[in-house]
Amino acid sequence: MFRKDLEAKKRHHYVWAEYLARWGCGTKNVFYTTKTGKIAHDSVRAIVADDYFYKINMLTTKHVEVIKGFSRQSPDHLHQQHMLYLNDFLMMQQAETIYRESGIQNQKAEQHLHAMKCNLLENLHASHEKKAFPVLAALADERLDVLQDKQHMIEFMAFFGHQISRTKTFRDRVIQVQPRSNAMEIEVADAMAHAWWFLSYMFGMSIGLSLYVDRHNARHALLVNDTRVPFITSDHPVVNVHSCVSETEFSAPKHADFYYPISPRVAYIICDSERFTSGKNEVDEATVVELNTKVAAQAMVHIIGDTNSVIQTFKRYIGRRYQKAP
């Protein structure tokens, strides 16, 4: 029997399974679209996950240069925070290098190294999920006052930022739009792809802090849906629904209304626009349809709902934002 620290976590969810279970009507089973475009009804454990998605790999000097280049665009205090995290990973990498160069082979050491590479980043995301759990539970019950607690707001914004940057959809689209017109651009794009496991966490830290610092300027609202059309979610659950976002191509928008469905009935939105007022907002069916359409348009494969009919209605919009306009 292996000790717990020797057990490598293989299946990595990039959208939290416990979150998706809110669409399970009291079970773990939800309706969702498959890779072949069909509708399935199965456990949340089966979707929005890849084997070893957050597994750490070795970083060369070039990879570290690219990471630092992106990090330096952040405020100095945040850059320092990024570097503390990076140094922790580099120390682990250095320990492995010393072990490899020793020529010694030890089964327990090999298992421990493999487990660390598979588990460290996955465990970091799990810690954010654990801290956000009571906040999400309160918001699902329409208790917006939970965010009057400063620590709850810090933890929710950290979770929120990572839920934007940690998905497969975000990874693939960001890497896809990197310029590759010369040798240096190709080198940077390749380095980004290799080091994405760290970059995605770093970007999530930056987004979360930015949302927290700006919390008194943006409008934070709870959307309550009592219509006959439930909210859906997806494999990229936080989406920018601001009117400036292109419906047909993936490009950086100037403004953001970050929309996050929490259950079939409740959603959270952080607005640059004045579309919703701070606090609770009842939404009509036309608004729900619009928001569901935008969730589907920014999904890669899976939209998730609590009924077959709602998935059937919106599945034709899946991935529409990533299809270039003719």
Score class of each variant (00 low, 15 high):
His112Lys: 10
Ala218Arg: 13
Asn308Lys: 13
Gly319Asp: 02
Val245Gly: 09
Lys10Asp: 07
Ser246Asn: 12
Val245Cys: 13
Arg321Ser: 06
Arg72Pro: 00
Gln312Trp: 11
Glu290Gly: 11
Leu121Gly: 04
Phe231Lys: 02
Phe31Leu: 12
Phe314Thr: 04
Asn87Ser: 06
His220Gly: 03
Thr227Asp: 00
Phe170Gly: 07
Pro134Cys: 08
Met202Glu: 13
Val177Gln: 15
Lys35Asn: 01
Lys280Ala: 13
Gln105Val: 07
Thr233Pro: 02
Leu211Gln: 03
Cys25Thr: 04
Lys150Pro: 00
Ile104Val: 15
Lys168Met: 12
Leu113Glu: 02
Asp51Glu: 14
Tyr212Glu: 08
Ala140Lys: 08
Ala267Phe: 09
Leu223Tyr: 08
Gly26Met: 10
His128Asp: 01
His125Ser: 08
Val213Phe: 02
Phe170His: 15
Ser200Met: 14
Glu285Leu: 03
Gly208Met: 08
Pro261Met: 01
Gln298Leu: 06
Ala126Leu: 14
Val238His: 08
His220Met: 07
His216Asn: 12
Arg143Asn: 13
Ser251Met: 11
Pro237Asp: 00
Gln176Pro: 14
Thr169Asn: 15
Met157Asn: 02
Phe160His: 10
Val310His: 04
Tyr14Asn: 00
Ile207Lys: 12
Arg215Asn: 05
Glu282Gln: 13
Gln80Gly: 11
Asp172Gln: 10
Arg320Tyr: 03
Glu65Met: 09
Val310Arg: 03
Met184Ala: 12
Thr277Arg: 13
Gln94Leu: 15
Ile269Gln: 01
His12Lys: 03
Thr60Lys: 05
Arg320Pro: 00
Lys280Val: 11
Thr287Pro: 01
Ile47Glu: 06
Lys315Gly: 01
Glu285Gly: 00
Val310Pro: 07
Val245Ala: 11
Asp214Phe: 05
Glu290Trp: 10
Val229Gly: 01
Glu247Leu: 14
Gln312Met: 15
Asp42Val: 01
Val15Pro: 00
Met58Ala: 02
Phe156Glu: 00
Leu20Gly: 10
Thr248Leu: 05
Gly279Leu: 11
Gly279Glu: 03
Asn308Gln: 10
Glu290Ala: 06
Val238Glu: 05
Gln298Arg: 09
Tyr201Gly: 14
Ala297Arg: 14
Cys118Gly: 12
Lys68Pro: 00
Ile67Trp: 06
Cys244Ser: 10
Leu144Asp: 09
Thr313Arg: 07
Tyr85Gly: 13
Lys4Gln: 11
Tyr212Phe: 08
Ser43Val: 03
Ala137Lys: 09
Thr307Tyr: 11
Leu144Glu: 08
Lys324Ser: 00
Arg171Tyr: 15
Trp16Ser: 03
Glu249Gln: 14
Ser127Val: 14
Pro134Tyr: 13
Lys10Cys: 06
Val174Asn: 14
Asn182Trp: 12
Ala221Lys: 05
Gln107Met: 15
